[in-house]
Design a protein around this nucleic acid. Sequence first.
DNA 1: CGGTATGTTGACCCCTTTCAAAAACGGTGG
DNA 2: CCACCGTTTTTGAAAGGGGTCAACATACCG
Lengths: 241, 241
Amino acid sequence: MENTALVRKLGAFVALSGAELSVLEGLHKRRRTFVAARELVHQGQSDQAAYILISGWAYSYKVLRNGQRQIVDFQIPGDFLGLRSVLLQISDHSIEPVTDIEVTEVLMTDLLDAFARTPRLATAVLWAASRDEAMVVEHLVNIGRRDAAERMAHFLLELGARLSLVGLGSKAGFACPLTQYLLGDALGLSAVHVNRVLRKLRELGMVTFREGYVTFDAYDRLTEFAEFDPTYLDQVGPLLK
Amino acid sequence: MENTALVRKLGAFVALSGAELSVLEGLHKRRRTFVAARELVHQGQSDQAAYILISGWAYSYKVLRNGQRQIVDFQIPGDFLGLRSVLLQISDHSIEPVTDIEVTEVLMTDLLDAFARTPRLATAVLWAASRDEAMVVEHLVNIGRRDAAERMAHFLLELGARLSLVGLGSKAGFACPLTQYLLGDALGLSAVHVNRVLRKLRELGMVTFREGYVTFDAYDRLTEFAEFDPTYLDQVGPLLK
DNA sequence: CGGTATGTTGACCCCTTTCAAAAACGGTGG
DNA sequence: CCACCGTTTTTGAAAGGGGTCAACATACCG
């Protein structure tokens, strides 16, 4: 089964029965692929389907009239794309792949049906949504109250931790397809300043971001510097037995 | 029934049956009151209960080691307090009343039971959580990509719109118990700058914030200025019939 | 091999912060 | 009713973090 990442995520919250697993399985209706940098969901469009990311990276963002863009979050394998859009019946944001991506489509009607048949699954998805919200909240704190260097450090650590949870990273580092423009739009910084900050962090011997790879040169020192506390990403144990 | 605000909110998403309404009713176990400015939930504490706000204002926030504080959102009547904390089993933020508040307590076990018995309620709560997340996302855009004046304007408009939905405000204005320090911590600005920005907006003839009351002097011009689009707050009609 | 996207660095400027201090406000107790 | 005191609001002056503009280096690609 390829959507292990999602099953693992939800399984951490709710111990899923065989029946529930097969309902979850049944959600994966259609396999689709999208190419890098071509918008997948458009802000304002009303959606009938969400996606589960199988491979590749994507990001969700909002654009302002003056052309500025704020990236809300990056999505990595195992994450939902556009779940909120489906529930609110309208997309309040756009989604674009960073790399070529593979997804499976989840139809809203199927999802609501699944909830009706297996309430525990609804709870599990509610948990996943809460975790996503916790990440957005952390980004808010990051942008609102940390200076550029701390912000960058925190961001890279969070990404590393998330990737580690799905086997794509470690405390040593991770492969990262993001450009400095994307980083800037995610952190509320200019691309130019992103560059300067990365240099500073490199010179401080804490992280190196070069050639699509992030290396944590001093993980603990970086964690301390960024005041990074991964509690909001972890799940201690199944809440529903 | 006093928790009309919540019923109205959820009812907008899911047409609730009599049975579902009574389950919802049954959630309101205990009525409690808290006094202003005394912390109600502490960051890091593990929670067994959430609250539904009946009257008064509260705010959720995170503190950094250096003492800085980022307010994530203000809660007004009809809003959940600490729903995310309950689902994640740990509070990633603190909550404090702005004014004296009345709440009803919702025990986690009751909530999960209610989900099991009435799946549509789970869907409705998932919707409410999505709406909260949409607000946080909008705050992120606000702080990340708007300058101080636009940010303040957008914030006041959103607050006005939310209060209007529960009958506590209009396009003319609303009663607002917030201090300039609270505004600053919510918007990622210093209190001093908040003051300057308010003066500027007042001199531009768009909003006036004086003596605990926000007056929209030119609602449309302000909306235009802040690029405020309330779509993310509204609900067009019940998704589940 | 030219062309386009990305990374790098310097100089300058402006929005916001910080520091400081005064004024206004609101409650409290005498 | 008033003196007193803590909180909140207001304003000024100076410093700084990050933005903007511009140029150049580098890498990738058909």
